Amino acid sequence: MTTRRDANLSRRGLLGGGLAALGALAVGRPLRAGGIGAAFAKAPFRLGLQSYSLRGYKVDGKSSLEKALAVSNALEIRNWEVYPGHIPITADADVIRKTQDELKKAQVDVVGYGVIPFKKGDPNNRKPFEFAKAMGIEYLSADPDPDSFDELDKLVEEFGIGVGIHNHGPGHRYDLIDVIAKAIKDHSPKIGCCIDAGHFLRSKEDPVRAAEVFGKRVFGVHLKDVKDATTFTILGKGDLNYPGLFKVLAANDYTGLVALEYEENEENPADDIRVCLEEALKALEPN
């Protein structure tokens, strides 16, 4: 895949030059006049990033929250669904407070968290909910065992935190819209779907239909594009009808998070993420 490397963000400059290089990423190159925050403020829902997109910014072989936040801040992204590689689940109040301070400094709100598993009878099932409550997280994207839903019913009601079943491509147990709809049918309305648009395309399903089917039970959207059900690509280069998806979400009064998740160019995705955000903004501009 051809990538855009015209910014001051070579792998050597990024990982060798440290946070100064990260912080300089967007200098003089606003996505829109007034910045992305001003442009996205007009959207009917929150727009942001699944932090998995920034997993390639590492320290000692591990994804670095500090570096990911620096890139996110430079791109003026204010909302995240965070993946556990950036912020592991913990019950340590001091660690949670320090993490919240770091997020606040970077002007990032963590709206969602995942993807995480749930198993029937597992005492660890409470931990993500306790962590989310302490962090102020609104929903968990999840891959629960089918026999764990009765337990999840109780947990989502107790904590007031939604669970979105994450579809994960062809052959996954929740790869199809109707399979997820059947799984959640007789369970709490706080259990729904985290729509991964790219993986639905890979499964030859229509993400727009997913938004129609799940309606008020959409807990998170992973915005990613795929070409010919095989190749992840920049938003607008694949087959995703994202204007149609946005239209249905808005019609359903969805006010949750639409998180761009860009899986390509792992070590240096920032410029590609910028292009994807530009495409999302174009789809939200008045005709």
Rank of each mutant, 00 (worst) to 15 (best):
T3H: 10
A7H: 13
L9G: 02
S10N: 11
R12Q: 14
G16C: 12
G28Q: 06
G28C: 08
G28T: 09
L31R: 15
I36N: 15
G37D: 14
F45C: 13
L47R: 07
L47C: 08
L47A: 11
G56P: 01
Y57F: 14
K58F: 00
K58E: 12
V59M: 04
D60I: 05
G61Y: 08
E66I: 03
A70N: 08
V71R: 00
S72M: 00
A74I: 11
V82N: 14
I87W: 12
I89W: 07
Q100C: 03
D101I: 09
L103M: 13
V108Q: 11
D109Q: 15
V111W: 07
G112R: 10
I116R: 07
P117I: 11
P117G: 11
F118R: 11
K119D: 07
P123V: 15
F131Q: 06
E138R: 15
S141E: 08
D143G: 08
S148N: 03
S148Y: 05
D153M: 04
V156F: 01
F159Y: 15
V163K: 01
I165Q: 00
G171Q: 04
A181G: 01
K185A: 15
H187E: 01
A197N: 04
L201S: 07
N241V: 03
Y242T: 04
P243M: 14
L245D: 06
A250P: 01
E261C: 03
Y262M: 03
N265I: 03
E266M: 07
A270Q: 09
V275Q: 07
V275M: 04
A283H: 02
N287V: 12
